[in-house]
Design a protein around this nucleic acid. Structure first.
Lengths: 228, 228
DNA sequence: ACCTGAACACCGTTCAAGT
DNA sequence: ACCTGAACACCGTTCAAGT
């Protein structure tokens, strides 16, 4: 069973594939066709090799998708940091950058593992932890609070950015919202007193604002405990 | 293409399968073998029918798993409510009940859709909304805050309760944590200043406490804005 | 109305053989 | 060290035919 390699350590063939190339091509297919559309046969065809070649660079489809998701996370984590805003502001900006990255690659969010193991997920948690420390939170609480924020970012992003069919993304989402709004409308108010009242909010809400609303609440809660 | 039916409206055969029976059997297989282990062939064998019969009650595997996940959510939402604790306490208890239900069926959490459409997910959001209203939060903010809490519960549960291999669950999880703790230990402190410091916390943490820590922060943040 | 079971069109993964 | 491509052991889903 071949191990997964990184880039060829020189000495191999010149035209050799690399894990990077394989993952890059996988991301392109994932974006275009979704998780089910990504196939080893198609990917091999795209890269002009056989399916077996891919297994030299990647041990399974699960690993491939996990690596692809970590790559997406990399876009967000690599973004420049403002020199020295408050820890709270920086946390806020970082979380939104990650959400936006996942939003552009709807298949990705569910595939970051918790606790993190891949490089960019690790980098994200580390950065969160560093910012949380700057917040003044006592050392014993930093781990739990940092992972809580990490989980919020990845978990809630995954929930909100449901894999939409690979068609016209925004139209699809609008139609979906309109449809479920109508569904809620028709529920029995006796059983669902709250939902039947706020269908208008559902119809008009924006996913990104939803994410930010929860984030603000979470960070406000954090601030409260940091001050105490 | 046959539509999905609920229970047979009488008049059909006496021995007829029902969607309930199919979903119930699916949950058993999901618990035992995980999402990949659930197969229409195996499920049909278990129910002593052909695979085609299943499609009379359920339109696809996706729908089947979604219905199964909603059923799991039903266990938590059906639990008795304390008569009249504070809204915050009730929210707290409800969230933990949902986490515990997902914890017993690790495949389930990723399959509740957002915004919710299936009955028990709707019930959960409605209950959250009703409690949030009791909190005194202004009406315009209730939708956003309630869904934020809903997303936290389902999204973070899904993150934390990663599908473990269907073997000895607790041992597996411990081994996984020990392994990633060692992984973190070996990282370069220059790149990961935070992570390399808190591997002890990782090794000793409990998933459920993690969930609760974040939940407490979120609810504290909510309280702050409700009071204002 | 509900079930049967064969058939279709795929999958991920392996592996002997090549270079 | 890295690639080829056929072969294995499956899948989800459909559908004509039955009761």
């Amino acid at each position: 069973m071949p191990r997964t390699r990184g880039r060829a350590p020189a000495g191999g063939r010149a035209d050799a594939l690399s894990q990077e190339v394989v993952v890059g091509a996988a991301i392109a297919l994932l974006d275009e066709l979704g998780e089910r559309g990504l196939t080893f046969r198609l990917l091999a065809e795209q890269l002009q090799t056989g399916t077996g070649a891919l297994y030299w660079h990647v041990s399974s489809k699960d690993e491939l998708v996990a690596l692809a998701a970590d790559q997406v996370l990399g876009h967000a984590v690599a973004a420049d940091l403002d020199p020295a805003p408050s820890a709270g502001t920086a946390l806020h900006a970082l979380a939104i950058a990650v959400f936006d990255a996942f939003d552009q690659h709807p298949w990705a969010a569910p595939h970051v593992s918790a606790p993190p193991t891949l490089p960019n997920a690790l980098r994200l948690l580390d950065r969160i932890g560093t910012l949380v420390a700057r917040t003044g939170l006592p050392a014993e609480q930093r781990f739990a609070v940092s992972t809580a924020i990490f989980y919020y970012i990845t978990g809630v992003s995954a929930q909100i950015i449901a894999p939409r069919a690979p068609l016209n993304a925004t139209t699809e989402r609008d139609a979906y919202l309109a449809q479920t709004a109508e569904h809620w409308q028709n529920l029995d108010p006796a059983d669902y007193p709250f939902l039947t009242l706020i269908t208008k909010d559902l119809r008009h809400h924006a996913d990104r604002d939803q994410f930010i609303t929860g984030l603000d609440i979470l960070l406000r809660g954090l601030k409260t405990s940091a001050d105490t």
